[in-house]
Amino acid sequence: MSYLSISNVSKIFGGVVAVEDFNLEVEKGEFISFLGPSGCGKTTTLRMIAGFELPTSGEVVLDSENITYKSPNERNVGMVFQSYALFPNMTVAQNIGFGLQVRKTPADEIQTTVKEMLGLIHLEKHAEKYPYQLSGGQQQRVALARALAINPRVLLLDEPLSALDAKIRVELRQEIRRIQQKMGITTIYVTHDQEEALSLSNRIVVMSQGRMEQVGTPSEIYNHPTTEFVASFVGQLNLLPVSEVDLKNGVCKLNGQLVRFDHSEPRQISDKPRLAIRPEEFQFGQAEGRNLIQGHVEVVMFLGAVVRLRVRIGEVLVSVDLFNERNMTLPRVGDEAVVNFPPHACWIM
């Protein structure tokens, strides 16, 4: 049996289904992200693991112990909140030591752990400061240390970086991963930021409208999405209407032009089949053995590392990302464009 097992868990709030039939097996030391838009049920699921919400049905088993109906203070599960939730009346050291203090841990042991945690988050010099004297990033690091100080069985992080600015977010996300790997702690991370989920996780659970859409490694989620929601929520995706789809031979027509697609995985297609392809799969110009389509450049956006184009192919606008090169000549609006892409990079939905 896995270390953390969430079986058939559902949560209904006054007739509204927040989480529906959630099943997940987590191995010890794994870093799992719950990824999805606001209101998809990811935080509710996390709160059910923490004990702040009781499941309407199903059970949560942690380390062979059924904790479904245990109160939060008996679970030994650490949680980091989006808003830090540091106690404003306590110093950094007191905040970190709080969990040990309420457990009646000997004072010298508390002192040692607090010191160790302060070292872990590189805030040794701030031990006697109050939360209001710290920046947002520092406060969140203290919140992380506070959650880790009690040596929790699982670490839960509820959108811990969303209140921080972009640069701090990237720094702290690396910090979280470093600490998680160092301590080998099983971690569940809730986020709506795909970049966070992709860069941090061993596995990602993509959720939508209370349901699990797909569970997989970051690469599986990005490269082999199983549903249209996952494909369009994680990364950019072109969905281009096609006709005369031949699933057996992997060919269809896009605006009258013949296109080959990946048909190695069995897929169900809708009444209105569309060709799915990510913008970064395109290249400019002609190339042997690749699909070619012709159109006109309608929009050019220079984004630094990437140049994003919108190319009109008949009635359809296709998003094309080109990696920027120093000597690259940027296409101009109105230019005729021939773009190519490999057959294995596109599929029918």
């Binding site: 939060p72 203070n73 939730a85 540091l86 709080f98 309420v102």
Partner: peptide, 22 residues
């Protein structure tokens, strides 16, 4: 803030400890 209570509970505090210490 609700999070203060939840954070205290999550760290193992009882309701009495939350009220007296936080």
């Amino acid at each position: 803030r609700r999070e203060w209570r939840e954070a205290a509970e999550n760290l193992g505090a009882t309701s009495f400890q939350y009220w007296t210490r936080v």
